[in-house]
Structure formats: C-alpha cells, structure tokens
Amino acid sequence: MNLVVTLQGVGGFFGRMERTHPLLPWLLAIVALLPLPLILSGLFNDYYVYLANRICIFIMLSVGLNIVKGFCGQVTVGHVGLYAIGAVTAAILSTNFGFSFWMTLPAAIFIAGLAGVVVGVPSFRLEGAYLALATLGLGESVRIMISVTPYLGSSTGLGGIPAPSAFGFTFDNFTRYYYLVMPIALVGIYLSFAILRSATGRAFQAIREDTIAAAAAGINVRKYKLLAFVISAMYAGCAGAMFAHMRPGYIHHNNFTIIEMVTLLLMIVLGGIGHVWGGVIGAIIVTIIYDQTKDFYFYQPLLFGSSMVLLVIFMPQGIGGLIDRYIVTQRFIDARREAGDGTS
C-alpha cells in the first residue's frame, strides 16, 4: 500500500507540474537523468554506461512496438525487421555517402516508415494469427536479405560507421553518446503519451476494442491502422539509426534475429501491453537481466522463453496492469470509506 501512496504522490506531483507547463516534468526528467553516466562510471565502470545507452535504444523500440500492439491491438512480430532497416539505412548512408548523423537519422526514420506501410497494408485484411504470420515473414525476409546481399553487409556486417558530432563535439564514447540517446528516448516517450492522449490515440484504442464498432463510429479503420504501423516503424527506424551510430559503429545481421524479437516481446509483455511506462520498465528490467545473466549464456533463451510463457499464463497484464489494479482497488477502498463516513 505504501507503494500505491508513493505512486499517487508522484503522480500528483507530476500532475501539478504539468499544469504549470506541459513540458516541465519532461525537462526535469532530462535534468535528473543527466548525471547518470557519471554515477555509473564512478560506482562501476564504463560498461554500465554502455548498458544505459542500450536501455535507451530498447526503450525506443518497445515504446514504438507498444503503439501498434498495445494501443491499436495489431499483432506484429516483425518489428526487428524495421529496426534492421533503420540500422542498415543509417550505416550505408553514412559510410558510402558520407552523410552525417543528423541526415541519416531522418533518412532512417523515413525509410523505416515506408517499410511500415508495407508491413501495415496486410493488416487491412488480416487479423490476429494471420497478421502475425505475415509480419513474421516480412521481418525475417529483411534479415535474410541483409545476410545474403553483400551491399547490405551480408556475413561480414557493416563497419566503420562514424560517431555523430555537432558543433565540433563528437559523441564518440558511451558517456557522450548517452547525452544523445537519453533525450531522444525521452522525446520518444513524450510523443507516445501525446499520441495516446490525442484523437489519433483514441481512434487506435477504439480499433483495438472493437474494429467494427470503431468503423461504425466513423473512424477510418484502414487509415488509422496504417498510421499505427507507420508511427511504430518510425520509432524502430530511429532506434536502428541510434544503434548503428553507437560505438563501435558496427552492425551485423545477427543483431536482428528472432532472439531479439523475443527479447522485445518479453519487454512489453513484462511491462504490460498497452502501458507506455510498462514498455519503459520492461526495457530497463529485461536489458539489465539480459546483461547480468551473460555468464549463463547457454541458459538465457530458456530463462527468457519460460518467463514469457509463465507471464502470459499467470500475469497477462504485466507490471503495468498490476500497478493499475492496485490503484483502482485503492480508489474503491477510499470511495467506500468516504461513503461509509457519510452514512454513519
């Protein structure tokens, strides 16, 4: 119960700040997260700063996947393919054409968005398992395409991707890179909330709850489904570009296998499908666990797979659902207590 009170307190605090100015809590969050790499490298070592970077990239991925899967209810399992498209686009544009990060990032987002259209079009006619099959096929064909085409890296991978730089400042180690990816990840989370609260987000949720009723209420189902896919693909493309430019600036098709997809799925299942913070919490927890169990490399898939199966069976709402339920229960208790006071 203490947890609930704390959460409500934090929520209320953020709510008050948000009334002062809508962007204030986000600015505060950025400021609060600024000293993190110094603390991490001071307490442990540089490797943990690298981990923080990875978490930021995975937050982008899981938040993006949550938009199409959690908000709009479309089952897609080809998200890693879009991530790969973003990474490869950024890598090729920067190594072969000499574009800077500030050009490759929008390009990767754009190309991944186009690929999102391709992934989204089957969703017009397909539902549930069929859609999962189609997206799985698309995602995996992207990876196979990369692994057999020499221009896209094939078996040797693409290397020598330069670190981003701005005004003479190069983001060439993990501590510096953190100051690039952390704000981007926070902007991603903010935009995700903005989408959820807008009319678009309500249309997504209407489609998730009942497609036919949504269509009857005047929502252009095809348009919004496609929009959900494109937005989530753009998140994935952004994450891909951030991954490609991170030191050591090397990508390989083994970075985009089905195992990554499973890790990603576990993140949003653990965090709670449809909860923005759930995706963030899931990304943090899973990345840390993934790293801490590296010594037991052989047993990792077993751990991840079985926790996924057990989560789906016993805790289908994830951590986000658990928190929701506590808050709702607490409200009921409060309401009943107040009602009881009134009558007696």
Partner: peptide, 24 residues
Amino acid sequence: TVAGMGMIICGFGMSVVLQNIAFL
C-alpha cells in the same frame, strides 16, 4: 476460443525454450 496475442507470444516463448533445451 482464440486467446489471440497471448497465445502467439506464448508459442514464441515455448519455441525458444524448446530450442534451448535441445541445444543443452
């Protein structure tokens, strides 16, 4: 009935688990 997304995710998890067991 179809438990939809849950079943698909569960199948994925199961495939990873089985593959890992066979590997071990």
